[in-house]
């Protein structure tokens, strides 16, 4: 990591890899939690699938650890598409592949690159899943997160603070799915009965953005005297 000014954090590929490892850890720790959320309104496999997918990601990472961030993220996406299955596979797979394309060739990510990657990830999810805001999906956590990140950076916040705001917005977006009526995915078949349950996809999206914020804060703390 390099601190060019006191608040300007950039992310190296080594730190990106660390972040991906941490994502795998968090998904493993939340396997039962995500699966139980999915059991309430879906088919009880989201935690299992995400854990399996990120374990496959970990197995692939050594082969690209000296590559650029774009290649790393695209590799993550391909691994997820071919192992997660369900709707999560194409959606998260597309998200990571699109994020990878947004930062192709870069070995160090500036705050604007992180925003570009997350924005591309969100657009990929919307394109693949055709979900709108308020349909009770991943989009309900990712959209406010990307908006918060953009706003914070525009207002001059550093990456750590901006990601913290993104994670807070994702958490709120995740909680906001509780009263929503599901209109996409398997939960939509429950009709009114989907109301009152938190969306598992929005939850896993929040968890991943939370990891990004935590990793950034950890890096910042390490660098401060």
């Amino acid at each position: 990591m390099t601190i060019t000014r006191s608040e300007e954090l950039t992310i190296t590929t080594k730190e990106l890899l660390m972040c991906l490892h941490k994502m795998a850890e968090v998904l493993e720790a939340n396997r039962e939690y995500l699966t139980s959320l999915d059991a309430a309104i879906g088919d009880a496999d989201h935690g299992i699938n995400m854990d399996r997918g990120f374990k496959a990601v970990l197995a692939k990472l050594p082969s690209v650890e000296d590559k650029d961030a774009g290649t790393i993220l695209k590799t993550v996406g391909v691994a997820l598409v071919s192992t997660v299955g369900g709707a999560g596979g194409p959606l998260y797979g597309t998200a990571f592949m699109q994020a990878g394309m947004a930062v192709a060739g870069k070995y160090e990510l500036e705050p604007q690159d992180v925003l570009a990657a997350l924005d591309a990830a969100l657009k990929g999810v919307v394109m693949r899943g055709k979900a709108d805001l308020g349909d009770k999906t991943m989009v309900d956590a990712l959209t406010p997160a990307v908006n918060a990140l953009r706003r914070a950076l525009e207002n001059g916040s550093g990456l750590t603070e901006a990601l913290e705001q993104a994670a807070a917005a994702a958490e709120q977006g995740m909680k906001d799915t509780i009263p929503m009526l599901a209109k996409k995915g398997r939960a939509s078949y429950l009709g009114e009965r989907s109301i009152g349950h938190q969306d598992p996809g929005a939850t896993s999206s929040y968890l991943l953005i939370r990891v990004m914020a935590d990793v950034a804060r950890e890096l910042q703390t390490q660098q401060e005297p």
Binding site: D43, D45, N49, V81, S82, T83, G85, G86, A87, P90
Partner: peptide
């Protein structure tokens, strides 16, 4: 065949 109750993958 995918995993139990989980769609198979494109590959």
């Amino acid at each position: 065949p995918g995993e139990v109750f989980t769609s198979p993958t494109p590959d």
